[in-house]
Amino acid sequence: MSDATTNMTSDPMLEAIVGPTPGQMLRKRIFGHQGLMIGVVVLGILVLVAIFAPLLAPHDPYAQSLMARMKPPVFLGGTWEHPLGTDHLGRDYLSRLIYGARVSLMIGVVAATISGVIGTAMGVAAGYFGGKVDAVVTYLINVRLAMPVVLVALAVVAILGGSLQVVIVVLGLLLWDRFAVVMRASTLQVRGREYVAAAKAVGCSTPRILMSEIMPNIANNLIVVMTLEMAHAILLEAALSFLGLGVQPPTPSWGLMVSEGKNMMLFEPWMVLIPGAVLFVLVLAINLMGDGLRDVTAPENRS
């Protein structure tokens, strides 16, 4: 046998490390995905607006001025003093819109995080342990799915009284079902992989396996569901506020603004259209981002 074939250690050394790292590939896919980029940019702008609201808002969103009620926006013949006009109490509409972004984003993020923690814990436990745990979780998911979210939220808020905190907690405790379903399914898929068996054979504890072997491989699904539930929570808050059972006046909330504007809708449609439009843009941006994240993280899963 010739020398070159017997030298065992040399050949893999010669092998090139093929391809870029998973991180590099992910970055390339992210920047190549149009929908995702649009979603991220729009959402990023809205987040910046919410953070820097005190600097950006031209007026105090709570300051009433009965002398300047119902001023139209600039493009309908208003003045630059109030670029988007004023509401029925003379409060600057643009400032209320800017502060309203804080409420919407906070509700979206916090409610989705609460339900994410609950749903992921339940879903991962059900998927990994199976058996009785799975049976109990599946039962709870079914119970939860049988409850109409809006109706339950309305009832609870009606009893406890509406406030930002109550709305966040109620939504957080209600929206975990999709997390649980998706995380259970993804865990079931990952649980059977040989690297999980290898970790067990190494002597890893169960929490360690869950955290370092299972979680990183289902995190992409978690992020996707997270964005969807954020959008869901934001819309539900708007709906509850519109019905008067969500965020209470005078807190600036987009749902509340639509509600307050609805009496004037026939004469001053912009009062409804402006907060409605920003709500639409925010939810669209989040959904674009969610869809994009699903697209860019999926191929890695398949390989």
Binding site: M1, A4, T5, T6, N7, M8, S10, D11, L14, E15, A16, V18
Partner: peptide
């Protein structure tokens, strides 16, 4: 015994 190999990719 040692088997033959084809080095590289």
């Amino acid at each position: 015994a040692r088997l033959g190999t084809i080095p590289g990719i």
